[in-house]
Amino acid sequence: MTPIDANSPLDIIFVPAQTGTPIGTIVVLHGWGANHDDLGELVPYFKLPEYQFLFPNAPFDHEYSDTGKMWYSFTGAAQLSDRSVTQLATSREILTTWIESLPDSTGIPLDRTWIAGFSQGGAMTLEIGLDLPVAGLIVLSGYLHQNRAKPPQAAPLVLLVHGRQDDVVPIAAAHKSRQILTQWGVDVRYQEFDMGHSIVPEVLDTVRSFVTN
């Protein structure tokens, strides 16, 4: 895996397509307290050799980890403090600007770019991706921010995947996200698995099918 700049203040890992010229880009956002290496190890298991992957580090250092990063801090039971809201706004601006610049740096248009995220990264996927003309959004064990504004009518297709035994982001959060997105007119594909707050092989199969079909 190769770090690249890509005209961004974010620290980014780039994994090129294994087949040469890529047919698409997949941006993957890590969860709270992890970093861009965490999900980068899954690239071979996605079995998407014709796609290039980009793994950005969140801009904020995690409070309780020397190596972890976060898109914003939590207070109490996943509540957002004034500091959290400010950090969320910063992450949203940085990510949006960077993703909008990707066609110039990668040569792949946004309509061939997918945004994926796990946990807090899944929340950020919905936060920024619903307003972008990307190919699709992949939310793994994530959630929709409570104050998220209704997206435009042209919001991209969304895949929500969640574990029934998730004790970090309860399954009820996924049900609520699906309900709200559907009410907004977003095309949502939803899948539950017998798993906790994790990514099992069946999840990767679901993601691969979503991207390629």
Results as ranks from 00 to 15, higher is better:
191 Q>Y: 02
33 G>M: 03
115 I>L: 01
140 L>F: 04
50 E>V: 06
186 V>L: 10
14 F>C: 09
133 P>R: 06
39 L>H: 04
92 R>C: 00
91 S>T: 13
160 L>N: 04
37 D>E: 02
108 I>P: 02
41 E>D: 15
109 P>E: 01
81 S>R: 04
92 R>P: 01
150 K>P: 01
193 F>S: 00
88 L>S: 04
45 Y>F: 14
150 K>W: 01
209 S>Y: 00
63 E>Y: 07
97 T>Y: 15
146 Q>A: 15
170 P>R: 08
78 A>K: 13
113 T>V: 01
50 E>K: 05
194 D>A: 10
105 S>P: 12
80 L>C: 02
161 V>M: 09
125 T>P: 00
129 G>Y: 04
77 A>P: 04
20 G>R: 03
177 S>A: 13
119 S>R: 04
208 R>K: 12
110 L>D: 00
45 Y>A: 04
189 R>P: 11
76 G>T: 03
121 G>H: 06
49 P>L: 11
48 L>I: 03
164 R>Y: 10
97 T>C: 14
26 I>T: 01
134 V>A: 00
101 S>Q: 07
38 D>R: 07
64 Y>E: 15
53 F>Y: 05
120 Q>M: 08
23 I>F: 04
148 R>Q: 14
14 F>S: 12
105 S>Q: 12
162 H>T: 08
23 I>Y: 07
89 A>L: 11
8 S>F: 00
158 V>I: 10
166 D>M: 10
116 A>G: 12
190 Y>K: 07
117 G>F: 05
23 I>C: 11
169 V>D: 07
173 A>N: 08
89 A>H: 12
78 A>E: 10
16 P>W: 00
195 M>E: 05
11 D>G: 14
158 V>E: 07
171 I>L: 07
122 G>F: 00
129 G>S: 07
97 T>R: 15
201 P>M: 15
139 V>Y: 03
114 W>E: 02
37 D>T: 10
149 A>Q: 15
106 T>E: 13
14 F>V: 00
116 A>F: 02
208 R>S: 06
24 G>S: 08
165 Q>F: 10
17 A>S: 08
95 L>D: 01
140 L>T: 05
131 D>F: 14
81 S>N: 05
